[in-house]
């Protein structure tokens, strides 16, 4: 019996890792077990609440004032953004583009962090409209993409995982590249010729190529550019824009009907 179970384990492990045949089984098992995950997250949630309660009153007033200023500033920006958006929609209609101008978003809370692979678990699942392939962002930039869902929860592969790749463009000059996670807390640009104009401090945004990620979300800032004389490709590291190790609340980018964007499969493993 033990031998049979060991062989069965090895078999389903390989099938589960290399194919999506067991996705249905995982969905059912995870949906049953999801409530336990929420219970397990309660102490962490309570810890955050206690921290907020114990925060100094003056500190909270200061923070409130800061937030009010920020809301005012963002509203100002939004006024201009709406005008630009309207113009953008008009121009896209002129070009008969099917690109959506505004994505629907869903606020989700992080309930668990996993180190290998680099994933987070969110408290929203298929019942809330989350689908495999959808992009996840925080207030600063791209966080990752949904790779697995249950009815009540979902799992997001972070952009810094080594199996994650995202097409990007340099905001300054529209140069295109692929950003791949380094498996720790950063990204690297893959196969960038030494002749391409990429500099330290350049801001990278999603290019929308491959149609896996919506266009224009900040991905990160170029940290170092190392060009060895004999190499054809530059060695470029990128610091993620999103607060991957701090954000507890994130946004899942749904499409207009709450379903996955076109080509909604997780990105191909790098390499």
């Amino acid at each position: 019996m033990l031998t049979a179970l060991l062989v069965l384990s090895l078999g389903i492990m390989l099938v589960d890792e290399k194919t999506s045949l067991l996705r249905g089984a995982r969905f059912v098992l995870w949906t049953v077990a999801s409530p336990l995950q929420f219970v397990a997250n309660l102490p962490s949630k309570a810890g955050g609440a206690v921290g907020r309660t114990l925060a100094d009153h003056d500190q909270l007033r200061g923070r409130l004032a800061d937030l009010e200023r920020e809301v005012l500033y963002l509203r100002g920006l939004l006024t201009r953004h709406d005008a630009v958006l309207t113009e953008n929609v008009r121009l896209r209609e002129l070009y008969e583009s099917r690109q959506r101008a505004r994505e629907d978003m869903l606020v989700a809370e992080l309930v668990m962090v996993s180190a290998s692979p680099l994933t987070i678990t969110l408290d929203k699942g298929q019942l809330h409209g989350v689908r495999v392939g959808q992009a996840v962002i925080d207030s600063a930039g791209l966080f990752g993409q949904v790779v697995e869902t249950s009815a009540l929860a979902s799992r997001v592969l972070l952009i810094t995982d080594s199996s994650h790749s995202v097409p990007v463009r340099v905001l300054r000059n529209d140069a295109r590249a692929i950003a791949i996670g380094d498996g720790e807390d950063g990204l690297a640009l893959k196969d960038v010729p030494t002749t391409l104009d990429v500099r330290e401090g350049d801001r990278l945004v999603t290019s929308g190529f491959g149609r896996r990620f919506p266009t224009g979300y900040p991905v990160g800032v170029v940290e170092t550019v190392i060009v060895a004389p004999a190499d054809l490709f530059a060695n470029i590291t990128v610091r993620p824009a999103a607060a991957l190790d701090r954000s507890r609340q994130v946004l899942v980018v749904l499409d207009a009907n709450g379903t996955a964007p076109p080509g909604g499969e997780p990105s191909e493993p790098a390499g």
Binding site: L5, S9, E17, W30, V32, Q37, S114, P117, T119, E148
Partner: peptide
């Protein structure tokens, strides 16, 4: 082994990976 399957989905591990250790 069956309990291991639930640990797998909760902890984002390949199906069967916890069961193999639990069963052994």
């Amino acid at each position: 082994w069956l309990a291991g399957l639930f640990f797998d989905v909760l902890l984002d591990a390949p199906l069967g990976s916890h069961g193999i250790g639990f069963a052994a």
